[in-house]
Each structure stands twice: as structure tokens, then as C-alpha cells.
Amino acid sequence: MATFGASSSANTNPNKSSEVAQPPGDSVSSICFSPKANFLVASSWDNQVRCWEIMKTGTTIGSVPKASMSHDKPVLCSTWKDDGTTVFSGGCDNQVKMWPLLSGGQPVTVAMHDAPVKEVAWIPEMSLLVSGSWDKTVRYWDLRQSTPVHTQQLPERCYTLSVKHPLMVVGTADRNLIVFNLQNPQAEFKRIVSPLKYQTRCVAAFPDQQGFLVGSIEGRVGVHHLDEAQQSKNFTFKCHREGNEIYAVNSLNFHPVHQTFATAGSDGAFNFWDKDSKQRLKAMARCSQPIPSSAFNNDGSIFAYAVCYDWSKGAENHNPATAKTSIFLHSPQEAEVKAKPRSGVSGRR
């Protein structure tokens, strides 16, 4: 069996994507674009959060490193404030830091947990920050005070979190999916056992707030609607598999315009899908290492994805000589991300 990190660098970039200049020195844990401009942020296991300015001219994409900041331990998550001025990041130092990036300000600690912070999201409709941790809590923070506005107990460690106000979905260990209506954030709206048999890796709330996607370690995605009357639309499908080899689905991103979505996995591939017609729109070539995180920019014209060792096959399969970390930028063609008209023919499952 071929091991990641040991493969040749010849197919590191088989999709001929643009490469971000001066990538992190260790594996990337999260990437996210500013909601206002083409600034890309990546958090990494080397304790750093970095920002690049991305320039797109026609089909040419370039990048310029702009700034970086440090945590005391590996950083696991990052997100932007909705005005595009500020970045929040959390990690293994049990802290969330606020970085006023565009004003050149210094990062300050704005949230604390009792264990590593796995997820962080800004909720503009509430002017609150939400953080999810391995301490089995989600905490809501008003940045003007040092204690949480509310601490919500979870049944297990937080692995993933997605917000599309008023919908928030939290995926925890033991395959729990906890749904919150943020108009009443201090109570669970619904608790669901994942429709997938194995550990949850990622969730993404539908843009219309009517449901969510969930991805697991066994190369499968579930499409779940919250309304009982819509349950017939729920389904699961296989992806990120190669023969008998099964890979984790690490990232789920909705396209901001067409509302189709991308999956990225430990097989080093990313694919574009239309959930409504149950079709894969485009399968991209596999890179030589896993893709742990991916993101669309604010208008969907750039899809960023990190390619690096994700430790899913343990330290014994990590080869420092070949395990380079890269962040690539792909310009999706309209045919790759725009839903095809439905003709009444059922799609593949």
C-alpha cells in the first residue's frame, strides 16, 4: 500500500493550481478567506497564523505574504469577522486570539477553554464569537467582557461547527450532531445521531439554513434536512474512495453564489457536487498528499486548498523529506460549480 508522504513530488499539483508563496512549515489545520476581500488566512501546527493577499487577473492568481502571528501551541482553527478587519484563531493553548489584522494591531486573547479550542466562528447577527472545544463545551463571547456570555455543555468533545444564523450545527465525538436555533441559543434545538456510521470530521450548514452536510472518516457525506416534511430528501453518498482504500472527508464548503458544494479529503482530491440533483459536477485529480482544509473566496471565483500530511496514518508514515506543505488556489470554471438544470432524471447516489 502506498503511504502518504512517501510518494514522489511529481503529482503534488496535478490540477496545475497556483501556489501560495511562503507556505507554513508544518501541516495546515484550517484556511479561510476574508468575507470582504481576497485575503487568505491559514492556521498551522507550527503555532502560526498567516495571512496572504491574493491577486486574480484573468486566469492568473498571485499571492503576497502580508503578516503572521503566533500562539503558544499548535493552532487548530481560524475565522474572520464579517467586516473583514479581524481574524480569530484557537488552538492547543486553550485560547482564542483576536488579531486586528488590517489595522496592524497586536493579537489579544479574547476567550479561554479548559482544553484545546477546535472550532471558532463569528456570528454577526448577534455580535458574538462562538468557540467549541475538546472540553465538551461551546462558549459564546461578547468581546467587551472576559467571561463567556453563555457556556453550553456538549455530550462529547467538539470536533466541528458550522453557523448560518439562526442555524448552528455542532458535531462531537460519538457521532452526536447538536442543532441550535440561535434565536434561543441556551437550549438544544435538536440532537441527531449522525446518519454516517463512523466518526464525524466536518459539517456545513446549508446556505438556506434548512439543513446541513456532514462528512466522516469513512469517505461518506450525509445530506440532512431539519424539517420533518423534508426527510425524504435526506441521503448519503460515497466519495474520496479508491478501490478498497477509504479516506476521510476533511472539508465541506458551499459555493457562495451557486450553492453547490465542494468536498476535500485525505485522498488528496477535491470534488464539486450538487446536492439537489445528487450529482458530482467535477472530480479533480488527486494530489500526492491529503487535503485537510479548503475554502471558497467571497465570490466563489477562487477555491483554496491545503495539501500536506494530515497524520491520519500516524507518525510512522510521515516522511519529512517529502512531506512539504502547500496551499493551492484553483479558479473554478462555471461548469464545475454551477448546478445543472434538472430534467427529472434521478441522479447517482
Results as ranks from 00 to 15, higher is better:
234 N>K: 09
253 N>R: 14
274 D>K: 00
210 Q>R: 15
275 K>C: 01
226 L>I: 15
220 R>I: 01
296 F>G: 04
300 G>W: 02
298 N>T: 07
261 F>H: 11
278 K>W: 05
264 A>F: 08
282 K>A: 09
273 W>H: 11
227 D>Q: 15
258 H>D: 15
267 D>G: 09
226 L>C: 11
234 N>G: 08
210 Q>N: 13
248 A>H: 07
281 L>T: 09
255 H>T: 08
215 G>K: 03
263 T>P: 09
278 K>P: 01
268 G>M: 05
246 I>E: 15
209 Q>C: 15
210 Q>F: 01
297 N>F: 02
242 E>T: 11
240 H>E: 15
238 K>R: 13
211 G>F: 05
261 F>G: 10
239 C>H: 02
258 H>R: 02
224 H>A: 04
266 S>T: 13
227 D>M: 12
220 R>F: 00
254 F>E: 05
232 S>G: 05
256 P>D: 15
213 L>E: 06
269 A>Y: 00
219 G>R: 00
244 N>Q: 14
243 G>I: 04
282 K>N: 04
243 G>R: 07
282 K>R: 09
234 N>A: 10
290 P>M: 12
275 K>N: 03
272 F>D: 02
296 F>T: 06
221 V>R: 00
240 H>G: 08
229 A>R: 13
242 E>S: 14
213 L>S: 03
240 H>A: 09
291 I>W: 04
253 N>L: 04
224 H>E: 15
235 F>T: 07
293 S>P: 02
